[in-house]
C-alpha cells in the first residue's frame, strides 16, 4: 500500500474517531494537542486502525504509556536520556528531534503527529 493511500485511510480514522474536519488532519498536526485526542481516544483509534488495515495493535504500541509517571524517564520536569532511549526503542515511528532539542515534559504530547501515526501503520504493514 502506498504512503498516500495509508495517509488517507489514517485521516479517515482520525476524522471518525475525533470528530475533526478533513482539513485539520495534516501530516504535522499533533494527535493530542491539535486534534484534541484524549487517552481513551487511543483505544478507539487503535480499534479503527485494526479494522481498516487488518492487523492487531498491542496496548502502548502506538504511543508508549507510562513515560511521564516513571521517575527514571522524567526528572526535574524533563525527559531523561533513559526516557529518550526508551522512546527511540519502543516508538521508532516517532520523530524525536524536537523532544531531544527541548525535552520538557509538556513537549511529549507534541511528538505524536499524524505523520508518525501513518509511519506506524506503514511499519506494521511492512512487518506483516
Amino acid at each position: 500500500m502506498q504512503r498516500e493511500e495509508i495517509f488517507e485511510k489514517v485521516k479517515g480514522v482520525l476524522v471518525e474517531a475525533l470528530a475533526v474536519d478533513d482539513d485539520e488532519v495534516t501530516p504535522d498536526a499533533t494527535i493530542f494537542n491539535d486534534l484534541g485526542a484524549e487517552s481513551i481516544d487511543m483505544l478507539d483509534i487503535g480499534f479503527q486502525l485494526e479494522q481498516a488495515f487488518g492487523f492487531k495493535i498491542e496496548q502502548g504500541e502506538m504511543f508508549p504509556e507510562g513515560v511521564t509517571s516513571d521517575p527514571e524517564m522524567v526528572q526535574d520536569g524533563k525527559v531523561t536520556e533513559a526516557g529518550l532511549a526508551m522512546l527511540r526503542q519502543r516508538a521508532p515511528h516517532i520523530d524525536l528531534a524536537a523532544l531531544e532539542a527541548d525535552p520538557r515534559l509538556e513537549k511529549v504530547r507534541d511528538i505524536f503527529t499524524v505523520d508518525a501515526l501513518a509511519t506506524f501503520v506503514e511499519n506494521k504493514l511492512k512487518a506483516s
Binding site: 487517552s39 481513551i40 483505544l43 480499534f47 504509556e65 507510562g66 509517571s69
Partner: peptide
C-alpha cells in the same frame, strides 16, 4: 459505543 476496562487505563 466504546468501553474501557477501568483497571487497564493508560494513566495507571
Amino acid at each position: 459505543l466504546l468501553f474501557s476496562h477501568l483497571d487497564r487505563n493508560m494513566a495507571g
